[in-house]
Each structure stands twice: as structure tokens, then as C-alpha cells.
Design a protein around this nucleic acid. Structure first.
Lengths: 348, 348
DNA sequence: TTGTAAGCGTTATCAG
DNA sequence: CTGATAACGCTTACAA
């Protein structure tokens, strides 16, 4: 049913129908109600093609994400955004990437300034630099630029949508997997590998979740130790080796994608330790394949990127409702199912 | 860059450009090459809105899937298809559902006849009735109706695309999970619960995969027994109870969504048996939540349905390339991550 | 307050 | 072989 047909039914011109559809201009109460009734009755749905053609405009979304080498974690959400551009670009959604160094607060601040200058129609934000990201969100709010947060939540709820993971539950899940793989009186290490001072909320919440599970799994009598390794020390690898070589370790949890560093040591030293970590990046893939890493927990980073842009398509172009909070599933990945988790990205 | 602009550059009318774009009508070699060169140079991409508006046609896809009660497995792929209709319907994709009784070959044959009569632009087929489904595929091929197979593969490769699971690997994964949860010399049962005579390939392949893993995990000394339960016997539940109550069972694998029947028995009789099955249907959900079922393996049935229709959108409407085979990940679902696997379907 | 008409980019038809 | 033109359904500016 087209506007024209509706106009005929209502004995008005299509201009009048348009006015009630868009609530612009004045329409007499009587005709307005008549048209509304017909609209309701025929369940009018505008033709997206005609609408898109007539409007003929496009939107720019800024993606503010960490830069990354090939095979690193943050490469993946970006690939998801790029795949979305490939699918949705034809509908008038464009993306500008702004890459910052996640170990350099200054670079983040510089990029945020650039984004504000661009005045995009939307922003996709990876809030890894927590404090500054929160400040940036206030500025976006002030400029009335809608933004979507990916990966992990930050303080405040003035965002358009959040797409990411539940880090606490991720830690609980890791604990479940590790606890059920080690002896009842085993010794478990949590090893955090970091190379900056930032308060990393994701890491912190995973560790809290891990401990939470350990406390509730009281039928076991496990020994738990928490260890930090600082990559800025030149001898951090030797240090890590020493830690892993201690006697009687049954399991190790690395609450980040850096679990492959531990895997490498376990492999080289032929240690027999159950190992659980996060994220199916290439370096972890090979150790999963060989069984050195027992489980990796994934949170569909490629999907996160894709959905973030898709949400802007829905919001800006299709004027659809979107979910404010999307927690993607925590995938348990192990040797036997990893082959189907590799994101199939073929960007030509 | 529009056709009009290209026509200007080439000193021809836009009708001529259109002819070379669509390879229809005759165009002199010289002008054709000139236009082609410009098209290449400016990387011409047609405006999807204008195209959709001008073509103004819509496509009908027939979905041939098992009927189901609420909470049963086959409800979910249908919900995925419906969600896709909600998103893609506006672009001119319509779906007609044809539900058959998966325990009644006749009903399947009747539905296939109805589908052929409709002459749809595409078919989504759940090939649970293997033999007849294969025959139907030949008929579709003869009528040149493209079809997508969901869930599990059947013989032949004349389909447009397949979207489903690797059942063999699903069985291997189940074995891995069960083996790592039971004692080294434990006793494991595979219990198949069926209510028809059909040769169910999915079930068979899962069992084969399970055994394959058991053979390769030779460091354990496990006892394996394979048991069939026929739901057409009036006393099948009592029978199942007896089986589960045998002495010294450490683990049970039910290679289907019917694992909740075993869970119910384990719960009622307070047995201590590790339990692994398939599919996050409601009945399994509650037993996972309480920890009676240890792991369920899922294959994203909602996604399967969604992607099947999305593929037809890509193929019929957007004229995009589509993957011939999509194996969706085998998700490991357990108490600690199940809350994020529930498909969030709100069909208003 | 209401009607009219141009224009969005593509497709398809018809006349030259 | 080529050019001109109507049509698709909607938006928007302008005229009545």
C-alpha cells in the first residue's frame, strides 16, 4: 500500500498524507484522524527503497579503537566493523577509523579531539583507557553524538548501546573449567600479564569472577595464588618462566589473550599444567590446537564490531529499535571445536 | 557516481550505459569498451535504493521445516527465519512456512508437493527425513528452484548453500567433555532416544564421532556401552530408568536434545552421573541451570534459520556471493555461560 | 490548511 | 545500434 493509494482512499492529496506521517505542517483534526485510521487499518509500511532514494543521504560513523599488529586481539573487532561496512555501506553508512595506542593515554586524547572535530553521526568506542573514555563520553553527550561502547562497560549509561561481554562471569566460567580439570587439592595460579599502569577493569573483573567461583566451589580444597607480571621489565619472560616452573602447579588462569606466553613456556619446559585463558587470537589458536592451552574463553569480538555498526545502521538509516545492552555469549573453545570459531573474514 | 554522470563522460545517453551494464541489446564495440573503461575507472556501484525501487519486485521463499511444540528443538530455526523476515522483509523477501510431522513421511511428501505447486523463488529445507528429502532436492533442481539446506547435510551437492553443523565433530566434542569429567577407568553409556524408524544421520554421526574420540583418547581405560530406547514402547520411560539405575555408571551421552529425559531420572533418583547432550531447548535449560546436565552442545539453530533466509536475500535481492557451506560453531554450554546463549527473540 | 510537481538513480520500453 | 522517456514510491519546496 503506497502513500498515493492511501491518499485516494482518504480523498486527499499525497502531500497531506505525508504531513500526518511526518507530523510536519498543519492538518485539520478531522482529515488527520481519517488518515491515521486508514494508516492503521492497512498497516502502512513505507517502501524503504523509495525512502532511501528520496532522502539520498549518508551517515558517517567514527570508530575509535586500539591499533594492533596482525593477530592481536584488537584487530578482530575492527575486522567485524569492516565486514559490516561491506554489507551495509551500500545503504549509506560510512566509517572513519581512529586508531590509538592503548598504552599511551595521549594518543587516545588526540584521537578523541579528531573525532569531535569530524562531528560524525555516531561513534563506536572501545573504552580500554577507562578514565579518559568516560570523559570523552560526556563530550559526545554534550554534542548530542550517539555512541556505542564495545568490549567492556564503563561508568555511566548515556550511551546508545553497549555490545560486549560480562567479564565477571567470564572469570567464573574460567574457574569452572580449571577447577574441573585439576585434582581436588590442587594448586592454581592466576597470572596477569600487563604492560601499562592503567586500571584495567576487564582484567580485574575476570579475576574477581574467578575468585567468586572458587569460593562457591567449596567442595574442593584448592590453593590459589595471584601473580602479576609486568612486561615493561626487561626480564619479564625469565620471571614468568620461574613462576611457571615452581613445584606442584596444577592449573594456571591468564585472564587475557596473553595466555600464549604461558603456553610457550609450558610447551618448552614440557610442564604438565592445565591452562585456561581468553580470546582466540592466532597465537592462542596454535596452542589450543596442540592441547597446551586447554580452554580459551571467547566473546565474539568480530561480532561485537559487526553489531556495533549494524546498530548504527538500524538507528540512523532504518530508524529501528535497538537493544541498549547486548552481552554476547562466552564461548568455550577447545581443541575439538576451535576450527569452527575462526572468524571467516575474506576482505578482498 | 551515477549512470547519468557516466553517460555524460562517455558522450552517450544513459540508455546505452544501461545496456552495457546489463549486457542487453546491442552496443557497438567501441562505445562499449569506452563505457566499460569508465565504469572500471570510477568503480561504479549501483545505488541499491534506486535499483530496488525501479525493479519493485519481491521474492517468495518456502520454508520446509518440522512442526514443533513450544520449547522443542525445531521451534528455534523457525524463529530465526521469522527474525530474518522482520529484518529483511522490507527488502522484498517473503516466506511461506510448510510444516511437516517429522515422524510421518507422508506429511513430508504432501508438503513437498505443495511447495512445488507454489513455485517459490527459493526453498529452505530441513532434511530430517533423509531419503525423501534427497528425492525432493532432485525435483527442485529440475525446476531450477535454488534451495538451502539447514541443520545437517544430505547426499548430493546441488544445493545453493548448506548451513548447519558438523555432527561427527559434535560427537567428538561431547566425548572430550565427558571423558575429562569421569574417572580414568569409568563406565560410559551412549543412550539414543528415538521415536521413529528413520535412519537419522545426525544421531549416527554424533555417535561415530563420540566413539572416534574414545578410541584416540587411549590414555584412559574406559568402558563404553551403546543403548537404544524406543519411545514408541509404552514403557520406555521405565526402561530408561532401569538403564540409568545400573551400577557404576560414571557418564552418559545422549546425542540429541532429548537429554532432559535422562536428566529427569538422574534428578529424581539422585544419581551421581555426568551427563552431556545436545541443544539448549527449555527442558535442557533448567537441568543445566541446576547442574544435572553438565554440558550441552549447541549449534546455533536460531542463527541457522536466520542465515538461511539472509542467504536468499543476498542471492536473490542483493546479487551477492554467498558461501556454499557454512558450519556453525559447536558451542559448549554449561551452567556458567548458559544465560548468554538464550536466543533473545522478541517477536511482537 | 491543502495540492502540485520536481527530483532521487535505476530499469525498461518504444521510437528513431 | 542509440536516445528519450515513463515509471517505481517517497520527500520536500512551493504555490494556492
Amino acid at each position: 500500500m503506497t502513500i498515493k493509494e492511501i491518499a485516494q482512499r482518504a480523498n486527499v492529496s499525497l502531500g497531506t498524507v505525508d504531513r500526518v506521517l511526518h507530523k510536519r505542517g498543519k492538518v485539520s483534526r478531522k482529515t488527520k484522524e481519517r488518515i491515521l485510521a486508514i494508516l492503521e487499518e492497512v498497516d502502512y509500511k513505507p517502501n524503504v527503497y523509495a525512502r532511501g532514494l528520496a532522502l539520498n543521504k549518508s551517515f558517517v560513523v567514527a570508530a575509535l579503537v586500539p591499533d594492533s599488529e596482525e593477530g592481536e586481539y584488537w584487530e578482530v573487532p575492527s575486522l567485524g566493523i569492516k565486514r559490516a561496512v561491506k554489507n551495509l555501506g551500500q545503504f549509506g553508512i560510512k566509517v572513519n577509523f581512529f586508531y590509538f595506542d592503548q598504552n599511551n593515554v595521549e594518543s587516545f586524547i588526540e584521537r578523541t579531539a579528531e573525532v569531535l572535530e569530524l562531528e560524525p553521526d555516531g561513534v563506536i568506542l572501545a573504552p580500554v583507557i577507562n578514565f579518559e573514555a568516560t570523559k570523552f563520553c560526556f563530550k559526545l553527550k554534550a554534542k548530542e553524538i550517539p555512541f556505542t561502547i564495545i568490549d567492556s562497560k564503563i561508568h555511566g549509561d548515556n550511551y546508545l548501546s553497549f555490545i560486549g561481554q560480562d567479564s565477571f562471569q567470564s572469570g567464573r566460567l574460567a574457574a569452572k573449567l580449571l577447577v574441573s580439570s585439576v585434582p581436588k587439592q590442587g594448586k592454581i595460579f592466576i597470572i596477569s600479564i600487563k604492560n601499562n599502569e592503567n586500571h584495567n577493569r576487564t582484567l580485574q573483573q575476570r579475576i574477581e569472577g574467578f575468585k567468586d567461583f572458587m569460593l562457591s566451589a567449596s567442595n574442593q580444597d584448592l590453593l590459589l595464588e595471584e601473580i602479576n607480571v609486568d612486561q615493561r621489565n626487561s626480564d619479564w619472560k625469565i620471571n614468568l618462566e620461574k613462576i611457571c616452573s615452581r613445584k606442584n602447579i596444577d592449573g594456571i588462569y591468564v585472564p587475557s589473550s596473553k595466555v600464549h606466553f604461558v603456553a610457550e613456556i609450558i610447551f618448552n619446559k614440557k610442564l604438565s599444567i592445565k591452562l585456561v585463558g581468553n580470546d582466540l587470537i592466532n597465537n592462542n589458536f596454535k596452542y589450543l590446537e596442540s592441547g597446551i592451552i586447554d580452554y580459551v574463553i571467547g566473546q565474539r569480538p568480530e561480532n561485537q564490531g559487526y553489531m556495533a555498526l549494524e546498530n548504527f545502521y538500524k538507528f540512523l538509516v532504518a530508524k529501528q529499535e535497538i537493544s541498549k545492552n547486548v552481552f554476547l555469549p562466552l564461548d568455550i573453545i577447545t581443541k575439538e571445536n576451535l576450527m569452527y570459531y575462526k572468524p571467516q573474514i575474506e576482505l578482498s
